[in-house]
Amino acid sequence: MGERTEKARRARVGYGSSYHKGVAGELGEKSRGIGTVLGGQVWMIKPDKDARTANPCLWMQAGVVEFKNCNNYYDCTTCKYDQGMRKQVEKKKKISWQDSMRRRPSLERVCRHSLTNRIKRRVCAYDYECSKCDFDQFFEDVWTPKTKNLPLETRHIKGFEVPSDYYFHDGHTWARIESGGYIRVGMDAFALKLLGKADSFDLPLMGKELEKNRIGWGMRRSENGAEFISPVSGVIVEVNKKVRESPDRANNEPYGDGWVFLLRHPDIKENFKELMRNSASLEWMSKEVGKLEQMVEEVAGPMAADGGYFGDDIYGSIPGLGWNNLTRTFLKTG
């Protein structure tokens, strides 16, 4: 791998830490790395200084620990690492990240959301007592749910987009974990191209509790209706009014402005257990496209030798496929 390519990979992914088995005597020697004990074995971890931390932990940014990536979507209230660090603070073995920041000059005491790269630089005006900060409440309750997030990387299967960082349900709905532990939900490009542009969407109300693998919302196109399975469980905290008011947004940007709602659930890992991602979602989508091609050939005759690409309104172009047949086969709800 060339030097330029390697640097680009490290900048994008943030990988690069090396580790080796150590001995107890190494634990106090910072030059050898960060020492930890797992299962009675000493491990020395040395961060790659050239690698960019994609999701920096507050404790690292405040200088309490040398290297730690956030793997809990900045939801500190449910983070086991944060809970462990707080216990260390109670035992006087560590200082809190707030106290560490308070030791800095006033202009360097930046907001916790700036520390985690979620907003531009902003100085903290409340001495890290976030519960008293109006901006903190605004950010968590209003700004974060409404923030538009686009896929980091998207693959294409014969014209159908498949984002690598989204989780897919086999009923052609998706879920994405976002900062603060929110879960954004929507319909995939395959379903929206399959059924064409909706006249309206029947979206649930805020506060409604949904259960995964059950009907979550619906759409109508002329006299036809379709229902979509919710890929995850949770309580709805935000509904996309733009999609309700302008249904074509879902088709125009299924993985961006076309999301349908945002929800919260206390156990994210369990909630996402059965969903597909990365290579699994690509393999599944390839099979779904193959199934659709076979159905089209049975109704409209042989396709191009290379299969070709499908248009944006498959049912509208080939109504002989049957609306109910399509929703039953692909959405699992017909």
Rank of each mutant, 00 (worst) to 15 (best):
A62Y: 00
V260E: 01
S17Q: 09
W217E: 00
V235M: 11
P302H: 07
G33Y: 03
L326A: 06
G25N: 12
P151H: 07
A198V: 03
H265F: 06
S96E: 02
G234S: 05
R244L: 10
I34Y: 00
D48L: 06
G63K: 04
L195A: 00
V237M: 02
P151Q: 08
E293C: 12
M295R: 12
W97Y: 13
D136E: 14
K87L: 10
C70A: 06
W143C: 02
N252D: 14
K93G: 08
S281Q: 05
R176C: 09
S96V: 03
W217H: 07
E66I: 08
N69Q: 12
T78F: 01
R214C: 09
A24S: 12
C79Y: 01
C124Q: 04
N240C: 04
H265V: 09
V89F: 00
P145C: 08
K94R: 15
V89Y: 00
L321W: 09
I177P: 02
M1P: 09
R12C: 06
L27V: 11
G84V: 05
F160A: 03
I229W: 01
R102W: 07
G181K: 02
L107W: 12
G218F: 03
Y15Q: 10
Y255M: 06
V42I: 11
V65H: 01
F139P: 00
T53K: 15
P204G: 04
E3S: 13
C79D: 01
Q98N: 07
K49E: 15
G290E: 09
Y19K: 06
N71T: 13
G320H: 11
C111L: 05
Y166F: 15
D165M: 07
T147I: 08
Y255K: 04
R10Q: 13
E6F: 14
Y19R: 08
D99S: 11
S279D: 15
R264H: 07
Y126L: 07
Y19W: 13
S131N: 11
M303Y: 01
P247Q: 05
K132V: 04
M295G: 04
W174S: 04
A62M: 06
N325E: 13
G2M: 10
G307D: 08
K158C: 05
I215M: 11
F139S: 03
L326P: 05
R102V: 06
A8Q: 12
R10C: 08
G33W: 04
E108N: 14
D313V: 03
E288I: 08
M1E: 10
G2A: 10
E90A: 15
R4I: 15
G33H: 05
N149A: 14
G84W: 10
K7N: 11
K94D: 09
R220F: 08
N117I: 00
G33N: 03
K7R: 15
W323L: 05
H265T: 11
P163A: 08
I157V: 15
G186N: 02
F261Y: 13
K269A: 09
P319L: 07
V23M: 10
R176E: 05
C111R: 00
